[in-house]
Design a protein around this nucleic acid. Structure first.
Lengths: 203, 203, 203, 203
DNA sequence: CATGAATGAGACTTCATTCAT
DNA sequence: AATGAATGAAGTCTCATTCAT
């Protein structure tokens, strides 16, 4: 990679980082492109060299951050050698809760984009290869060598994801109705209840 | 109520109605105060006699519309004489799904504000008395004369509300991953799973 | 007219006047809206209260100034009691040449918008009543009680207008190929030649 | 011409061609240098190796295209052996009308620059030698062996050129007040009228 | 109470031009 | 000679808010 290419990468990263930082502190709507370029130390025109507008960089950040989270969760899961679909789901959920609890700003930023919808949508918008793996198929993959079988696994996962993301936003960001620490056992119990309701009794 | 008072009420209602209409068609961020007053047929200054800013009228609308939805649901439930906590929950969920399916614009508008959080937030922002009753306590009320008992009923309801609002937004507005018609039985099954996971076996 | 209405008029006139002044000194493309509002002593937003953009005010100015010129020419012609179509044409041409020679900036500004085209186009864009009279029909009016008759009077006038506006721009603004003083007799001779070529020999 | 020299020429021609194409389709003011270099397939910096700015390339194009038009007209006239000043003028006018009618984009582009003025202006801006010959002197040349003599031939030609360019722009580009087909006989009649008005009766 | 003209900060965006490679 | 990333001044336009009427 040439010096020029490197410099280009550096500018773009500066934009990504400062944008993320501003989005999570001031909020997206109150962050202006001027804010971003000023903090990133680049010229205004440079922003438009890489992004169409504020929402373009936001979408790319969401895709990137969501993919990062799932990638991390997956890696940890393999590292720990977690086996069995139910255990894997609980592990992944716990990992996400821990991760987001430590990054409440990230949680606010990703909120409602963390669920299935985002993956499908981003999909269609041609993600970079990095993000490719984190799609519906991933979930099929988790199930592949499990003895228990589930009715409509994609709907099962949709259900769990929506529940996790909604409750975790409320408990972590607003601490309402209770803290995540307090809610966590009930969330896991609820997930078990959902898993059961989707399981094929004769599977 | 005097003629003057009546006229005042009329203007305010015009503002509410046009604002809601514009918010649900153009979206909140793309609706300007100019748009609202122009469509409502009042002067710009008049807006500021009744509302602090765009977000003030939005919050008041959200409170009003959410309360309206719950009031309707409750009335229908009583009318039909639905008894028993589980049946009541399923009825209320079904009512909300039907109601929101017929008003997807309302759903988009209320989204993220439909759950528990909304009641708490609105609280803090001084609701009118009208909306006061529709709070967590309502749920306690539903449970009062039921034989089955639940562990942490408020967390149970929080769980259900988050699940319903998240999935119903996705299925109705984006038809993702499936339509609400297709998802509905799984939602009810999931709710049953959650109810079971919260029930006191020896209750 | 109330105080408010008067102030409104004053602002709009200030914009018209400064815009015209800047357009004729700096040129249209080099004049910015910021220039105009700054010179007019009004806020930027005020400009957009009255005009869509720079080209809107330009068009309105052209219409206004062109109408003004023709109105003046017509008034003087009546005042002097000039009779007979040929004499009237020569008078009008001379008046325009004198007028534009004294206002070369106006000439530059109106150039190529002075001809028939502008009148027809402006027409279609709904002029104010002030400008209404100055249209094709005006020319028919000049001919009404003349003994000589012309083939296609509208094409005759188109021909004369194009010739006058083109040559007068070149001679007055660029003094090329000669000054207007020097060219004027040849212009009148040419007009006579054109008139003759359009006259119905047996009229 | 070396390979390097050839490549240079190729790039410059690409710039000329794409600029002309863009100027005539999008208009000059809406064509950016970025548009030109992108369409030409060269780098932005390259543009500045050959041209000072957008107006530099425009002027050079105008000179080139105007010269081309006159050269063509002249060649055809000689080829057809048109003799006699009056016939030659009518032939040249007809040729120009035909040529421009087939290239209305060219007409729009050359407009206001087609007349005498263009030659003088371009002169001052250092034309290439190619374009030099097409000047007023050409007109003197046409007259050289004609029996009829004209008063102030350069003013005669100025008059005709202004009339032709103005009317042809209006009729061809805007089809106002009538189409060129309809106007053409009247234009020729007008030219005859002008010629007559300039002729030395006793010449 | 109601009005709506006026404001002006500031958002967004473009683009001619430069210059290190 | 050629490149094209970077610049940043300059422009357009919006819109929440005020205040004299």
């Amino acid at each position: 990679m040439g010096k020029l290419e490197l410099n280009k990468q550096k500018k773009q990263n500066a934009l990504y980082n400062t944008a993320f930082s501003l989005f999570t502190t001031k909020g997206i709507s109150k962050t202006t492109i001027s804010d971003i370029v000023e903090a990133a130390g680049v010229a205004k025109g440079t922003f438009y060299l890489y992004f169409k507008d504020k929402y373009d960089i936001r979408n790319k950040l969401i895709a990137h951050k969501a993919a990062e989270l799932l990638r991390e969760a997956h890696l940890q899961m393999r590292k720990k050698g977690i086996a069995g679909f139910v255990s894997q789901i609980h592990f992944l959920v716990d990992f996400m809760l821990d991760y987001l609890q430590e990054n409440p700003a990230l949680l606010s930023f990703l909120y409602k984009n963390l669920t299935w919808g985002i993956f499908r949508n981003l999909y269609e918008e041609k993600l970079t290869e990095d993000d490719y793996d984190f799609s519906l198929e991933y979930m099929g993959f988790l199930l592949q060598d499990d003895s228990v079988s589930y009715d409509k696994p994609e709907l099962l996962l949709f259900t769990i994801l929506e529940l996790v993301s909604g409750t975790c936003y409320s408990c972590i960001v607003h601490r309402q109705p209770v803290s995540m620490a307090e809610y966590r056992p009930y969330l896991h119990k609820s997930i078990d209840g959902i898993l059961e309701s989707f399981s094929c009794k004769d599977g």
